[in-house]
Amino acid sequence: MEANPAAGGAAPDRPEIQISVALIGDGEDIAQARHLAAGFLARAQAEHGLPVSQRAKDLTQLVVSELVTNARKYAPGPALLDLRITGATVEVVVWDTDPVLPVARAADAGRVGQHGLEIVMAVAQGFEVQREPVGKRITARIALADDPGGAICGRRPL
């Protein structure tokens, strides 16, 4: 895993906060990606004064773990992880080499495993999948601050 921190100017008063990492499939990618996400949010909070709730930290690590696990499991070759602060959310972006778009399976309490995408979609404030010229890119957005209405995922309950 190689880190490539980048900072640019998204807006004159708020710098873009971002880190990109190449995942090389060495068996430690998933744990390292989770630790990277925790450190990234801690730095965003400490160095930029952004409000980052414990819920946001926990959910970001969960989403990173699920998306990186899927990339390692289903896509041959390297993967990329981008974390960036966009407004009041953290974006978790994972690119992998497999062009097949993931599909959440129907709920089945008896099914063991294969719930990762369902979990990500349930906790993310936003979720999208894009086919790329090579592979695909999955983006999940998680609110940095707790929802004042008490919704766990930052969305209003249905």
Rank of each mutant, 00 (worst) to 15 (best):
residue 28 E to M: 02
residue 28 E to G: 02
residue 28 E to L: 05
residue 29 D to L: 07
residue 29 D to E: 13
residue 30 I to Y: 04
residue 30 I to D: 06
residue 30 I to K: 05
residue 31 A to H: 12
residue 31 A to C: 10
residue 33 A to E: 00
residue 33 A to G: 08
residue 34 R to E: 15
residue 34 R to G: 15
residue 34 R to S: 15
residue 34 R to K: 15
residue 35 H to W: 04
residue 35 H to V: 01
residue 35 H to R: 14
residue 35 H to I: 00
residue 36 L to G: 09
residue 36 L to K: 03
residue 36 L to C: 13
residue 37 A to I: 10
residue 37 A to F: 06
residue 37 A to L: 07
residue 38 A to H: 12
residue 39 G to C: 03
residue 40 F to K: 03
residue 40 F to P: 00
residue 41 L to K: 01
residue 41 L to S: 05
residue 42 A to L: 12
residue 42 A to D: 10
residue 42 A to E: 08
residue 42 A to Y: 06
residue 43 R to G: 01
residue 43 R to M: 09
residue 44 A to V: 07
residue 45 Q to I: 01
residue 46 A to Q: 14
residue 46 A to V: 09
residue 46 A to R: 12
residue 46 A to I: 09
residue 48 H to G: 00
residue 48 H to R: 00
residue 48 H to A: 09
residue 48 H to T: 00
residue 48 H to Y: 08
residue 49 G to Y: 06
residue 49 G to H: 04
residue 49 G to W: 04
residue 49 G to A: 01
residue 50 L to F: 08
residue 50 L to Q: 09
residue 50 L to W: 10
residue 50 L to T: 06
residue 51 P to C: 07
residue 51 P to A: 12
residue 52 V to G: 02
residue 52 V to K: 03
residue 52 V to T: 05
residue 52 V to Q: 07
residue 54 Q to T: 11
residue 54 Q to L: 13
residue 54 Q to Y: 12
residue 55 R to N: 13
residue 55 R to D: 07
residue 55 R to S: 10
residue 56 A to K: 05
residue 56 A to F: 05
residue 57 K to P: 00
residue 57 K to C: 07
residue 58 D to K: 10
residue 58 D to N: 08
residue 59 L to T: 05
residue 59 L to V: 10
residue 59 L to C: 03
residue 60 T to S: 06
residue 61 Q to A: 11
residue 61 Q to P: 11
residue 61 Q to E: 15
residue 61 Q to C: 13
residue 61 Q to N: 14
residue 62 L to S: 11
residue 63 V to F: 10
residue 63 V to I: 13
residue 63 V to S: 14
